[in-house]
Amino acid sequence: MPPRSVPPADDPIRPDPSSAVHVTVDGVSRTGRAGQTIAGILLTSGELSWRRTSQKNAPRGVFCGIGVCFDCVVTVNGQRDVRACQRRAADGDVVDTQHDALPAHPADPTSRLSADGGGGDG
């Protein structure tokens, strides 16, 4: 079974009703709850992984869940390498999964920045 949201009716904390948030992921529309992260929406819409690694083409999704491991990165509104577990989904966000090779020397901030294609205006 993939991860799932706790059905509000069964939830011991009795959450208030929440509004929906709509995003597209690789062109397919997905609905989540307002306030969910992009990772939360992906996980609860049946995806356990959404990225392929550059060397071994291995699937990855959430690992640390708190913004440390960068396994979960996606492209949001044209901007690469956004940590899906940290970014709250906004209505209309266009999310694309990322499978391309990472920059040659991502640990060196300058080369990472140039490989990022000046994403500052994305």
Binding site: I13, L43, R60, G61, F63, C64
Partner: peptide, 23 residues
């Protein structure tokens, strides 16, 4: 490295922060 293997903190963060059950 397989999907579905999480840190314990990730399970905790998803449970408390989003009410998502990892499995």
């Amino acid at each position: 490295e397989l999907p579905g293997v999480f840190t314990a903190g990730a399970a905790q963060a998803l449970a408390k922060g989003e009410r998502v059950a990892v499995g």
